[in-house]
């Protein structure tokens, strides 16, 4: 805003020497400095912990062990990342260490399956609730809606029991399926579907498109931007799952990175391998960031070209 005001050619205004003009320019300049100052402060607050982690991941284990907090890179970056990726640390004594490569793969598969599963289930249930009239339609909708009020922790014991009974512990299915049902996504899709004009449904009826055809050819393409936005949110939700994987997974080959990271800290008497932990933390950061950057291009594009 300030930039625009400052750069606008002031046609017809008084000459460059006009005191009022100079005063208003000075005010605009001051305002810009203030705004940028606040923004920079914000960036610092957010970036500093990540900077410390990034720098810490490039030193040897003893530097941080001594209690130093280095602010510039050391010389062990490549060794640390290779060790973390391949073995989960360099110390031979840590028998529970899981390679970061395995954990990242597990997390990526889990988060992708959760996000895709949640979107698939919720878009279909929202489609049913909005476009079909069947007995108990609103009752079903409210049943879905009410589960929003129950956080995972409340239903974790019955869910655990069900998963154990189905023999799904220590499996990717057990990790993903119980968290797939999503009231939030169903609600969001429902609200979006309500904005789709009835005329599209009627035009499709006259064109002879059945319900699934209409869903595939019209509703799904129109939901693209919503799906992209939800995928970002749900992928990060899946990536950050902690309590459920902690409960259900004992097999280290299925360890996810968020749980694995916490297990790397404070194991017995051994010294924490902070360099490996920080390298793993940086690695754990990358996939969600990649998803955000990738999908952002998509849904900003979708938001700017309105299609209705």
């Amino acid at each position: 805003m300030n930039r625009v005001l400052a750069e606008r050619p002031l046609e017809g205004a008084a000459s460059e020497n006009d005191p009022a003009l100079r005063a208003s320019r000075a005010r605009q300049r001051r305002g810009r400095w203030l705004a940028h100052g606040i923004l920079l402060l914000g960036v610092l607050i957010f970036a500093l912990p990540i900077w410390i982690t990034l720098v810490g991941s490039s030193h040897d284990v003893n530097t941080i062990g001594r209690g130093e907090v280095p602010l510039w890179f050391g010389s062990h970056a490549i060794d640390n990342y290779i060790a973390a990726w391949e073995r989960g640390g360099s110390a031979v004594r840590n028998t529970r260490a899981v390679p970061a490569g395995t954990m990242l793969w597990n997390s990526a598969v889990m988060a992708t399956l959760i996000a895709a599963g949640k979107i698939a289930i919720s878009i279909l249930s929202a489609y049913a609730v909005v476009f079909f009239s069947f007995p108990g339609r609103m009752a079903f909708f409210w049943m879905i809606f009410i589960t929003l009020m129950l956080p995972v922790e409340v239903r974790i014991i019955p869910t655990f029991q069900v998963v154990v009974d189905l023999n799904l512990t220590d499996s990717m299915a057990g990790l993903v399926i119980p968290v797939i049902a999503s009231a939030t996504a169903t609600l969001l899709f429902r609200q979006f579907f309500l904005t789709i004009p009835d005329e599209y449904v009627e035009a499709a009826k006259i064109d002879g498109a059945g319900p699934l055809r209409f869903f595939w050819d019209v509703v799904l393409p129109l939901s693209r931007t919503n799906i992209a936005a939800l995928f970002v949110i749900l992928f990060i939700y899946g990536w950050n799952q902690y309590l459920w994987p902690l409960l259900i997974i004992t097999d280290t080959s299925l360890e996810t990175v968020v749980v694995g990271l916490s297990k790397m800290i404070g194991r017995g008497d051994a010294q924490n391998e902070w360099n490996a932990i920080m390298a793993t933390a940086i690695l754990a950061l990358l996939p969600p960031v990649a998803v955000v950057i990738l999908m952002q291009r998509w849904f900003v594009k979708g938001l700017t070209e309105t299609e209705k």
Binding site: E199, A203, D207, V218
Partner: peptide, 20 residues
């Protein structure tokens, strides 16, 4: 019969063209 089986065409007030 369903609309599709009546061999008719309908022009809507707001055209109802599929935007995508």
């Amino acid at each position: 019969l369903e609309p599709a089986d009546r061999d008719i065409a309908l022009v809507f007030q707001n055209y109802a063209l599929y935007p995508h």
